[in-house]
Simulated scan of single mutants.
Amino acid sequence: MTTPSGLRVFVVEDEELVLMMIETMLEELGCIVTGSAKSVPVALSAVETVPFDLALLDVNLEGVKVFPVAEAIAEKGLPFIISSGYGREGVPDAFRHVPIIPKPFRLEELDEAIRQAFTPA
Rank of each mutant, 00 (worst) to 15 (best):
E15H: 15
E15F: 12
E16G: 01
L17S: 07
L17E: 05
L17G: 00
L17M: 09
L19N: 05
M20L: 14
M21V: 09
E23F: 03
T24I: 02
T24G: 07
T24S: 13
T24R: 12
M25A: 06
L26H: 13
E27D: 14
E27C: 02
E27Y: 04
E28C: 07
L29K: 09
L29Y: 06
G30C: 04
G30H: 08
I32L: 15
V33N: 14
V33S: 10
T34Y: 14
T34E: 11
A37F: 11
S39W: 13
S39Y: 13
V42C: 02
A43V: 04
A43G: 08
A43E: 05
L44R: 11
S45C: 01
A46D: 14
E48L: 03
E48K: 14
V50E: 03
V50K: 06
V50A: 04
P51K: 14
F52C: 01
L54K: 03
L54R: 02
L57K: 14
L57E: 09
L57M: 13
D58Q: 12
V59P: 12
V59E: 06
V59A: 03
V59T: 15
N60A: 05
N60Y: 13
N60L: 12
E62K: 13
G63F: 12
V64D: 12
K65E: 11
P68G: 05
P68I: 03
V69A: 09
V69D: 08
A70G: 08
E71F: 04
A72L: 10
A72P: 12
A72E: 09
I73D: 06
A74V: 01
K76D: 05
K76P: 01
L78K: 15
L78S: 11
P79I: 02
P79K: 11
P79V: 05
F80H: 11
I81F: 07
I82D: 00
S83N: 13
S84I: 10
G85P: 00
Y86F: 15
G87Q: 11
G87C: 10
G87N: 10
R88I: 09
R88N: 05
E89P: 01
E89G: 02
V91Q: 08
P92Y: 07
D93V: 05
A94T: 06
H97W: 08
H97P: 00
H97F: 00
P99K: 05
P99R: 04
I100H: 05
I101D: 09
I101R: 00
K103R: 14
